[in-house]
C-alpha cells in the first residue's frame, strides 16, 4: 500500500513534509484518521494533538497544534495550523 503524503504548515514555516502511513487529525467534529487514498475532505480543527503513524501499527508521533484546518485531496493531506509544537 502506498504511503500518504502529509504536510504540516504554519504561517511561520513548513513544519513537516513526509510520506507516512496514517495521520490522526483532531477535527472540530471529532478526530479522524487519514490513510492514503482518502476521499477529498476538508475540516476545521480544534486545538489538540496530531498523531502521525509512520508505519502501520508503529508508535505514533505527537504534535500539538492550535487552530486551523485540514484538507485532503488527491495529492495527500495538508494541515494548516496556526501553531504547531513538536514535543520532545
Amino acid at each position: 500500500m502506498t504511503d500518504l503524503h502529509f504536510e504540516l504548515v504554519t504561517p511561520e514555516k513548513l513544519v513537516r513534509s513526509d510520506d507516512v502511513h496514517m495521520v490522526v487529525v483532531p477535527g472540530t467534529d471529532g478526530d479522524f484518521g487519514v490513510l492514503a487514498g482518502h476521499a477529498p475532505f476538508m475540516s476545521t480543527i480544534r486545538n489538540g494533538d496530531l498523531l502521525i503513524h509512520r508505519t502501520a501499527g508503529g508508535p505514533a508521533e505527537r504534535i500539538a497544534i492550535e487552530g486551523g484546518f485540514a484538507e485532503v485531496n488527491d495529492k495527500g493531506l495538508t494541515v494548516l495550523a496556526e501553531k504547531a509544537s513538536v514535543e520532545g
Binding site: P11, D29, P40, F41, F69, N73, E82
Partner: peptide
C-alpha cells in the same frame, strides 16, 4: 484539475469559509 470530485466538508462549507476569512486576513497582514 481532478480535485473537482465531491469534497466533503466538516462542519459545512460556509462554517469553514467563515472560519477561514479572518484567518486569511491575518495571513495577508503577516
Amino acid at each position: 484539475s481532478g480535485a473537482d470530485a465531491v469534497v466533503e466538508y466538516e462542519p459545512g462549507e460556509e462554517e469553514i469559509l467563515t472560519d477561514l476569512l479572518p484567518r486569511n486576513i491575518a495571513v495577508q497582514i503577516f
